[in-house]
Amino acid sequence: MITTPSGTGNMYPVIELNNVTRVYGTGTAAVNALQGIDLRIDHGDFVAVMGPSGSGKSTCMNILGCLDTPSSGTYRFKGVEVGNLSRDQRALLRRHYLGFVFQGFNLLNRTSALENVELPLIYRGTPATERREMARKALAAVGLNGWESHTPAELSGGQQQRVAIARAIVASPEVLFADEPTGNLDSARSREIMELMTDFNRDQGITIVMVTHDAVMAAYARRIVRFMDGIIDKEEQNGG
């Protein structure tokens, strides 16, 4: 189990990067994907990460999502140094504090919407009846009442992404990481998804970090972080 310093409350920012670098490969073939990132995200924030391909935003998201670790510098999640954690400890951290939404939905095929949403709870060891109830509620929260038994193949893209969001928020995570969540959807569907995420951010205080290419989607966030060539080029506060 991951233990955060007791009585932290919001004393520590949820996410704190200090001079984080990430190097792929070694020697002359080495690629510096991140070249010294400083970033602080507080509890309840909604951050859009933008930047062209190869700017390092995906690398940064992998590190933020505890799927990868920095080559140097420190990443503190709620005050815990993630770089010092083992693979399994990071898995536990993801299990209890993080939710993920991907561009390609990444639902389990031939598995009902309900079972997909149950998945994180299974790993949390939630009892079956409670688990089903929570999954049902999460599906209802994304407006998929009555679609519980449908498999991804029987759902539209927008519905699939809703299932993915339900799966990400079912265990009430601290942070929701969304990697181009509207990349595969039309504009109407995209707006619905963004509104859903905004709701979860506002109503449940879930911190959201979202990668997007689309300025319209980024406008839903409170803050926009722009990446360029492995560094943060610009940080701006959204007026609206």
Partner: peptide
């Protein structure tokens, strides 16, 4: 592979 990736991302440990 992708399913395994999803499970790992969601918080499955190696031994699971």
């Amino acid at each position: 592979t992708r399913e395994i990736g999803i499970r790992l991302a969601i918080g499955a440990m190696e031994k699971q």
